[in-house]
Design a protein around this nucleic acid. Sequence first.
RNA 1: GGCGCGGUAGCCAAGUGGUAAGGCCGAGGUCUGCAAAACCUCUAUGCGCCGGUUCAAUUCCGGCCCGCGCCUCCA
Length: 454
Amino acid sequence: MAIKLFDSLTREIRELQPSHPDGVLRFYNCGPTVYAPAHIGNFRAFVINDVLRRLLDLEFGPGRVKHVRNLTDVDDKTIRRAREEGRPLAAVTQQWTEKFHADCAALNCLSPHVEPTATGHIREQVDMIDVLMQKGNAYRAADGSVYFKVSSFDHYGELSRVKERELKLGSALKAAAADADEKEDVSDFALWKAHKDEDGANSWESPWGRGRPGWHIECSAMSKKHLGETIDLHTGGVDLLFPHHENEIAQSQCCNGVTFSRHWFHNEHLLVDGKKMSKSEGTLYTLDDLTAKGFSPMAVRYTLLMGHPRKQLNFTLDSLHAAEKALATLRAFRATLPATGGDPDVFAHEFAVLRDDLNLPEALGALFKVVNDKGLKVNATAFDRVMSVLGLDLQAVARKAAAPAAITALADKRWAVKQAKDFAAADALRKELAAAGWSMLDRKDGYSLEPLKK
RNA sequence: GGCGCGGUAGCCAAGUGGUAAGGCCGAGGUCUGCAAAACCUCUAUGCGCCGGUUCAAUUCCGGCCCGCGCCUCCA
């Protein structure tokens, strides 16, 4: 059964198929800008894309999927950050690239096959801009910047359904862009940005003078280099629909003369407490923020899977509690399963709904139907396949905050008096621990400590 | 102003022209010094509001109300 996925361009649910004769599905996922820790909204996109990747591996075979995800390591934000911290750009982007990788690993996301950087592909970007200049799709402004001429591409706006006219009207309502004076038309966008003082050492030579690439061109260039002129699937968050992906299509198709991507998929955003994440309201969580509250990264991953990828998902701390409990149930269920025997097809519905436009909530619902149905015979291998495609690692040790020494000392003391059957003293110590925000979980052979929740 | 998404139980969230998946919370129970864990049972006559189509609508159509997102560098 083929994988069907909504295509943002045709607005239909369509089958995903490799178009190249080698049978390799070419998959490009827009990656992060590495100037700060990614927040959970970013990770919703990466986790959803990770499930998609796992599903594609399953469908076509691991060697038949080529997954590319870029790192944006030169842009306004990264340069500003480097300037503010008085560090070289590379130091800043390396730090946050490493953090991004660590977070992805904690969330059990597979690594893409290629993870190209913008600064590593200056040559390729310049080459593309050069072709666009020669073909008359781009022009050099007085300050040395190069812009893409939107009016030169008839299909501009087809992805986001934003007509050029309306675009102008919309942007006219806003403050004019800083570079408005340099552009022939407000809709035009930068391919190459002439060097400015605040860019510091971060510029490269080009036929148009020193400068740096515009944002959009990097994806066009890296996609072309690593996947070819026509790719099978291009994904990202809905915010990238316009202008980023619209501009990528314009650049790539004008440059290469062929279809850029055969399929587009965009995940909706994550909301926190029903609203857009906001730094000032303290709702812009990073993975570290949540693990500091005692939640495991796997619970964060599970929470990000609770909603349909194409619908906004309301993230709350309660959802995280729910996820933690759901994972505990799955863990306990897994422990009861025999290695073999049982019905190998009990999870057929899970895979079917995942293949049908990545219906994650329904897949999770179907999963628990199986877990709760005592009449079904399930073996561990079949169950593990489901966990694997969802990327839920039940063995992962919960990354809980370590208890401070004072708390451990109290807990040891309580364990001792409990062994001596001085229950009154044990209860008193339990209260002390609770007052300090810790819960002591007794087992026959010892105890564990967890931060008190709620 | 343009483009788009959504309103389903206390919370999160699927779904269908034929009478509401699932998770959490909550309640009861088994077990257990206590607490927790685990396991069992229960928990929406209802799917924003008003009309229409239909034998039948939460599901289709129209209107309205409310919420959210994007509109030049934010996944």
